[in-house]
Design a protein around this nucleic acid. Structure first.
Lengths: 107, 107
DNA sequence: ACGATACTGAAGTTTTCACTTGACAATTAG
DNA sequence: CTAATTGTCAAGTGAAAACTTCAGTATCGT
């Protein structure tokens, strides 16, 4: 199951942590195993696995276990939700500023 | 002082909290005072003020105190930083997928 | 002047959350 | 078969962070 319903709440919570953002940045360059992700960060493998679970539940990362190695890659779904949220907010206050501009320039 | 250097770390941390995101969403519709922001959320005024400080330090919100009322509004700077971060990551894995596509289609 | 409004500051409580440890399961290599 | 690799599970620790209370300040309306 990929990511049927992405929750924006989870997405923001996931990206709120700097370590998880570091994981996402690494994965942006291409898929990696859990231990490859863990090695450069001086935290335990367990901690990384926990972060990955949160990233996966948020729809930002997709993982697949083949044999004994779990391969992780970026899942576009979470990013799409994130971009939509920003776009929605932005359109709100830009529309508002437009109306303000209309008023000031005399309709 | 507006927001000279926006820190993406602070931006993501600020938006990681659902209450702060609710504040941002309210402010997207237009500027509001601290107490107007606090009333619908069943937390104390003090808590809201604390959230606003974090939002301001992150470059997502700008506030100005006139008389006894502090007016809060969206600050585009934080959002710009956020969008840039996403754009950067996205371009990374899209470039990668492009190269992959080239390989599969026989250069 | 007086009371009400709109915050602000300091300090404490409670909850959340990142991280660790240690034991265990499954897979692969020699 | 054995040993090393790769990851998982359960439980606990500690620190950050959200939220509260309470006391105080500045401003506004009458």
């Amino acid at each position: 199951m990929p990511s049927p319903k992405v929750n924006i709440d989870r997405v923001f919570h996931a990206l709120g942590d700097p370590t998880r953002r570091a994981l996402v940045e690494k994965l942006s360059a291409g898929p990696l195993s859990v231990s490859s992700l863990a090695t450069p960060l001086d935290i335990t493998l367990t901690a990384v696995a926990q972060h990955l679970q949160i990233l996966e539940e948020s729809g930002l990362v997709r993982t697949e276990k083949i044999g004994r190695v779990r391969t992780c890659r970026i899942d576009p779904a979470g990013f799409a939700a994130l971009e939509k949220w920003i776009r929605d907010r932005r359109s709100m206050w830009e529309r508002r500023l437009d109306r303000l501009g209309d008023l000031l320039s005399g309709s």
